[in-house]
């Protein structure tokens, strides 16, 4: 299995996909860092919308800063989906199935590799945030050390969520092997459909993947501070993590069953 995962990683890193996604993640991260410096704290439930920047110094603000790149977990998900749909798009799946004739093993290797790559992406984003965000903080007279102290509180949740979203991506990719279909379905859900659902159904947020991600990362100090996204209830971190894992495994199980029966012509 380790041998196959290493081969899978070689397969992944010899294409442009992971590097392009990593660059996009870092660019987005820089923008998210900027928004942390521009987001004023709520005072008495009213958001301060005046111009100008703040210098993060409270625990909440510093955690917001360290976890600024959190939402790039969607890129970990795309990485997971791409690592399986690319094989079908370029028909390299024929060679892959000759090397690994057992389809179940093939899907499992993808799940493990994508999870590891997702963790790698999370580490990359965290490092970029600490360097970029830390430099900005120090330049504005904030305390870099105080920021570093918040890393252990933020990092584990981020690694977990990135890994789980990469697994979700592989699951969806193994079901929808057409690359355009898979990417469209994923982005369509996360950009549009999920928000409609949350708006229509009371309490839906805690059940959708993004809500589960917020819970699993245990970053509920974000988004204005104090017990979750304002006005919405979330699961505890381990419930959220289990729910996310459940989504990933459910898609992977269906994809796995379909994959096993698929004729590669």
């Amino acid at each position: 299995m380790i041998r196959l995962v290493r081969a899978e990683w070689l397969k992944l890193r010899t294409t442009a996909v992971p590097w392009v996604l990593a660059i996009i993640a870092v660019v987005l991260d820089a923008l998210f860092i900027l928004t942390v410096f521009l987001t004023k704290p709520n005072v008495g439930g009213v958001r301060d919308t005046s111009a100008g920047y703040i210098v993060p110094h409270t625990v909440t603000q510093l955690r917001d800063l360290v976890g600024a790149g959190f939402e790039t977990y969607l890129l970990a998900m795309l990485l997971g989906a791409l690592c399986i749909t690319t094989e079908f798009r370029h028909k390299t799946v024929t060679t892959s199935f000759l090397v690994v004739p057992r389809r179940a093993t093939f899907v499992t290797v993808k799940l493990v590799t994508a999870a590891v790559a997702g963790i790698g992406l999370a580490v990359g984003v965290l490092v970029a945030t600490v360097i970029g965000g830390g430099a900005a903080l120090a330049a504005r007279g904030g305390s870099f050390t105080a920021m570093l102290h918040q890393v252990p509180a933020v990092a584990p949740g981020m690694l977990l969520v990135f890994a789980l979203f990469a697994i979700l991506g592989v699951g969806v990719g193994s079901l929808l092997t057409n690359q355009v279909a898979a990417i469209t379905a994923l982005l369509g859900w996360f950009v549009v459909a999920q928000n409609i659902l949350i708006g229509l159904v009371h309490g839906a947020l805690k059940w959708v993947p993004s809500g589960a991600a917020e819970a699993a990362a245990n970053l509920s100090v974000r988004n204005g501070g104090g017990g979750g996204i304002v006005g919405f209830e979330l699961f505890t971190w381990w419930q959220g993590a289990l729910l996310l894992l459940g989504y990933g495994v459910a898609f992977a199980a269906v994809g796995w069953a379909v994959m096993t029966r698929r004729d590669i012509t």
């Binding site: 041998r3 081969a7 397969k11 010899t14 690319t86 370029h90 390299t92 024929t94 060679t95 012509t265």
Partner: peptide, 25 residues
């Protein structure tokens, strides 16, 4: 096996394609 309609990832170098298969096998 040498099959028709098998393909390669266009962005991958020939040597990497072979190393990836060799490693997996």
């Amino acid at each position: 096996a040498v099959l028709e309609a098998t393909s390669f990832h266009p962005g991958r170098r020939a040597i990497h394609h072979l190393r990836m298969v060799a490693m997996g096998a």
